[in-house]
Design a protein around this nucleic acid. Structure first.
Ligand code: SF4
Ligand code: SF4
Lengths: 155, 155
DNA sequence: TACATCGTGGATATATGATGTCCAAATTAA
DNA sequence: TTAATTTGGACATCATATATCCACGATGTA
């Protein structure tokens, strides 16, 4: 019941791209550095986002990434499924497809599937735009000062 | 975003105990065998349920386990927290307590915490009784035949 | 008291998956 | 062609979930 680092990376990247949305592409290197994501790991995450049709990628010099949809069209559910695959709260079948002995008569499986459905609805109702909107009002300032001690001046 | 085997074991055990609720204690061995849970692993799970105040344990001959509350008083949230600890969807602090650089200005963290809250509400609204009620109507029959091929006669 | 029964506690192993690294190939601009 | 950049996959590393083991503590019975 946890947001993996991979998902965290993906969401951060998308909000970052969402704010740059002037049609210009952004280098993977820039994303990695600004978001403190290991470059070679980010590469893997980006591939998944591209394959899912969420971001657009371009090769070569002047290449990079940009959003393929507007931030308000990208839901958390899409992002989740891009990097984690289909959400499944209970795994009633093992890797070789053999079902749990209790599957045919299990009240628990039903319950988890209902919860899963509700959770999917929630994830589907939240967009990258929502996340951008929830950032504090002076984001650029902080982003550009995070090499220093990131101290709060709220006295 | 997954129900661990441990949690699955815990819920199965509690529904099993819930159905035996005549005040009588049940041996760990019986639970393990009927629920196909490794005995020595179940031991660990039971300890957590006892510590959480959900089940009652008794030493010695005639010992065993029984529910400390009625099935309708035990919520999934309680069970989750007993075996997994506090639900936290995002981990914005590493093990040594150092916070993520973005914590002070992160829209994502807010969003996950709201989702977390909703999920906790859902988990808190579902009880072991609900799960028992959702089992199919001939549970004993199936439970006692699972040494055979568990074939369905629904033609 | 002595003994058998059964849960407790913690140390330790094993398996699985998440995270991170590396390098060669593909694509494109200049 | 050459440099810049993403792509793809193999591989290494690390963390955690799962499982096992064994000595100990508590309780009933005789
Ligand atoms: S016990 Fe029920 S929920 Fe758990 S794995 Fe088997 S069928 Fe699925
Ligand atoms: S980026 Fe935001 S959500 Fe992710 S860890 Fe940092 S603060 Fe938490």
């Amino acid at each position: 019941m946890i947001v993996s680092k991979t998902l965290d990376y993906a969401v951060r990247t998308l909000t970052y791209l969402g704010k740059r949305q002037s049609g210009k592409t952004v280098l993977m290197k820039e994303i990695a550095e600004s978001q403190k994501i290991p470059l070679s790991y980010l590469a893997k995450v980006m591939r998944q986002l591209v394959k899912a049709g969420i971001v657009f990628s371009e090769y070569g010099p002047n290449g990079g990434y940009s959003l393929k949809k507007t931030p308000s069209e990208i839901t958390l559910r899409q992002v989740y499924e891009a990097v984690e695959g289909t959400l499944r709260m209970v795994e009633c079948f093992d890797v070789s497809g053999i079902s749990c002995v209790f599957t045919s008569c299990c009240g628990q499986a039903d319950v988890w599937q209902e919860i899963e459905k509700k959770l999917l609805d929630i994830l589907g109702s939240i967009t990258i735009q929502d996340i951008i909107a929830r950032e504090c009002v002076y984001p650029e300032k902080l982003l550009f000062t995070n090499k220093s001690e990131n101290k709060h001046a709220n006295s």
